[in-house]
Design a binder for these strands. Structure first.
Length: 197
DNA sequence: CTTCTAACCTAATCAGATC
DNA sequence: GATCTGATTAGGTTAGAAG
């Protein structure tokens, strides 16, 4: 494994300051994962509860990020196991961190190291069976934006990881627009502001 | 209140499987 | 090679915790 090191200084906190819209309609009553004894019902129908990293977890994530901005699935799983965080959360962390650092680089007119071997070390393509697809399709027709509870339920029913369910819905929405289902979120309205057809 | 960060989203693209 | 579809990316928004 070529541990490509980039010459950037150690990243401390990432000052992302892109927040410019704050509606404030907290109807979901989400709870923090700091108290990990919460019952499942407490997670509510919306987003998954926020899993805040401990300082040591953040250190490990940053250390890994400095070595490799685009870790493969093996690296992510190893890291996830090492610091006791679900692998999908590690993936999200890297996505957020890259986004943050990219913006910083641009703001300071510094070059971004760029992708490296993105095709190497991808997650193995998940084989979704016909019955699993049928189940997901039925769910999709009812609700194109399932919350965490619905996704967890689908994960139980299909036997697929919840993260794969989420990806399936993302891909499905992207490729089958205009189907019935729950109204999109404000985010999707905003993102779809440009007319498509 | 503002800032930070995790979660989530779209759009584009890469890539494996199948024909 | 064309098509379908799962996986990953950039770049953005949303929302709870912390300051």
């Amino acid at each position: 494994m070529p541990a490509e090191v980039h010459g950037s200084p150690p990243a401390s906190l990432c000052p992302c300051q892109s927040v410019k819209f704050r509606p404030g309609l907290p109807e979901m009553a989400l709870l923090t994962a700091l108290d990990d004894t919460l019952p499942e019902e407490a997670q509510g129908p919306g987003r998954r509860m926020i899993l805040l990293s401990t300082p040591s977890q953040s250190d490990a994530l940053r250390a890994c990020f400095e070595r490799n901005l685009y870790p493969g699935i093996a690296t992510k799983e190893e890291l996830a196991q090492g610091i006791d965080i679900p692998e999908p959360r590690v993936q999200i962390w890297f996505q957020n961190e890259r986004s943050c650092q990219l913006r910083q680089h641009r703001r300071q007119s510094r070059p971004w190291p760029g992708r490296r071997d993105p095709q190497k070390g991808r997650r193995k393509r998940t084989a979704i069976t016909g019955s699993q697809t049928a189940l997901l399709l039925r769910a999709f027709e009812k609700d194109r934006f399932p919350g965490i509870a619905a996704r967890e339920e689908l994960a139980r029913e299909t036997g697929l990881p919840e993260s794969r369910i989420q990806i399936w819905f993302q891909n499905r929405r992207a490729r089958h627009r205009g189907q019935s289902g729950r109204a999109p979120t404000q985010a999707s309205i905003r993102c779809n502001a440009a007319p498509i057809g």
